[in-house]
Design a protein around this nucleic acid. Structure first.
Length: 451
DNA sequence: TATCAGTCAATATC
DNA sequence: GATATTGACTGATA
């Protein structure tokens, strides 16, 4: 398909009332068992099914860089203005659950950091936003759902069945029967605040704990090791996202108005040179003085995350501080070349260093000496799959004839680059933290873990 | 094999 | 009741 053709069909697509939405909903009570999104994902049920030619994936692939933050912002507005719920929106438009939608809307990742799959919801949102009848359609869905619900309710009442699980998504309903009750769902683990606190401290010490460390943490906290592992995974990735949001906010504060396209911005933050190695979010470090080759930096990111945490959870931090003994045993074998969260925020003094690390630190003392800036930064810094693939849209792809696509997606012109004072300030701040920590790290201070 | 991205779904909170 | 949070899971990738 030639580019112009595809653009044409894309345009039609965008303009045409997303047909599928209805179909997928109506055909079957979507809620019911549709083996949720995961199954339906591959061949997404959504707006585009009518177009055999262009799958959502293709659309995503062709999509110019989108302003994820802006999109979610607008979606949120539309939803709230029209009193439409996330669940409805997610299930009908995005094919995602309420929790995912919430997460997505609240913490969109920058476009350039999203894998193709991750971009999908944003493209859908964009298409939805561009659809003049979007709200209407959702309203219809809402009505329909309500109707269906009433109907079901009615029939179940007459069946003398007590009330029924309300809305969509509750497929267990039918299960009343055969579903092996003993299917014993694992009860959800809920970590106690102290446990979280301890884990956070451990994280600050070592964001990538060794199995041994994990084991210990698990024992000390009386958790399963898998829980600890999961916790670290989740925490790392969530921190990264938070960071992005914070960046955006800082950015938009410093420069309101300019269609804040974080994605665009970050892509641009590290002008060309870094190519993809730049994470955008960590763009700050591009400004790192001394030209330390800022490798799209894990370290910085981590730094910033610590920073963020501090900002967002002062109380918590405050609590944590007393515990600190100052010297982050920083480097762990596992840590080498990884994002390293700075144990404390700027002002804050010594890092809260839970000490499980005592030996953990010893464990890899040798490597721990590694310089603060590793040459190659895997981990967070490493470009996500999407970035890795050459097919990266971002700013670095010049040959992309974005203009037509952009208009197609209703995009504003690329957001202006920015490096505002706020960012600079922040960068400076972070640098000083890093510096302090490096210094601290070179000292040897005993650390103790306390849980 | 470890880590990540993306997501679900249970639970908490508003 | 809607939304936010978060532990867990799956599949991809290096």
């Amino acid at each position: 398909m030639s580019s112009s053709e595809s653009v044409k069909s894309l345009t039609e697509l965008v303009q045409q009332p997303c047909p599928t939405i209805e179909t997928s909903k109506e055909g079957k009570p979507p809620e019911s068992s549709d083996p949720p999104a995961s199954d339906s994902q591959p061949t997404t049920p959504l707006p585009l099914s009518g177009h055999s030619a262009l799958s959502i994936q293709e659309l995503v692939a062709m999509s110019p860089e989108l302003d994820t933050y802006g999109i979610t912002k607008r979606v949120k507005e539309v939803l709230t203005d029209n009193n439409l719920g996330q669940r409805l929106f997610g299930e009908t438009i995005l094919g995602l659950t309420q929790g995912s939608v919430s997460d997505l809307l609240a913490r969109p990742k920058p476009w350039h950091k999203l894998s193709l799959k991750g971009r999908e919801p944003f493209v859908r949102m964009q298409l939805w936003l561009n659809d003049p009848n979007n709200v209407e359609k959702l309203m219809d869905m809402k009505r329909l759902e309500k109707k269906a619900y009433m109907k079901r309710r009615h029939s179940s009442v007459s069946d003398s069945q007590p009330c029924e699980p309300p809305s969509v998504g509750i497929d267990y309903s039918q299960g009343a029967s055969p579903q092996p009750q003993h299917q014993l769902k694992k009860p959800r683990v809920v970590l106690a605040p102290e446990e979280k606190e301890a884990l956070k401290r451990a994280y600050q010490q070592k964001p990538y704990p060794s199995p041994k460390t994990i084991e210990e943490l698990a024992t000390q906290l009386n958790l399963k090791t898998s829980t600890v592992i999961n916790w670290f995974h989740n925490y790392r990735s969530r921190i990264r996202r938070e960071l992005f949001i914070e960046e955006i906010q800082a950015g938009s504060q410093g420069q309101a108005g300019a269609s804040d396209s974080p994605s665009a911005r970050s892509g641009r933050a590290a002008p060309s040179s870094e190519g993809d190695s730049c994470d955008g979010v960590e763009a700050t470090e591009a400004e790192e003085p001394g030209g330390t080759k800022s490798q799209g930096g894990p370290a910085d990111m981590a730094t910033a995350s610590a920073d963020r945490e501090e900002a967002t959870q002062p109380a918590e931090k405050a609590k944590a501080q007393p515990l600190s003994s100052g010297t982050p045993a920083q480097d762990d074998r596992e840590d080498a070349g990884r994002p390293r969260p700075l144990p404390e925020g700027p002002a804050a003094a010594p890092a809260p260093v839970p000490n499980l690390a005592a030996h953990a630190a010893g464990e890899d003392a040798a490597t721990s000496a590694t310089a603060p800036e590793e040459p190659e930064a895997p981990g967070a810094a490493r470009p996500g799959p999407a970035e890795r693939s050459s097919a990266l849209p971002s700013t670095s792809a010049p040959a992309r004839r974005p203009s037509s696509l952009q208009s197609l997606f209703g995009l504003p012109e690329a957001a202006g680059a920015r490096d505002n004072p706020v960012r600079k300030k922040k960068a400076a701040n972070l640098n000083s933290i890093i510096h302090r920590l490096e210094k601290a790290a070179s000292r040897e201070e005993p650390i103790e873990w306390e849980f």
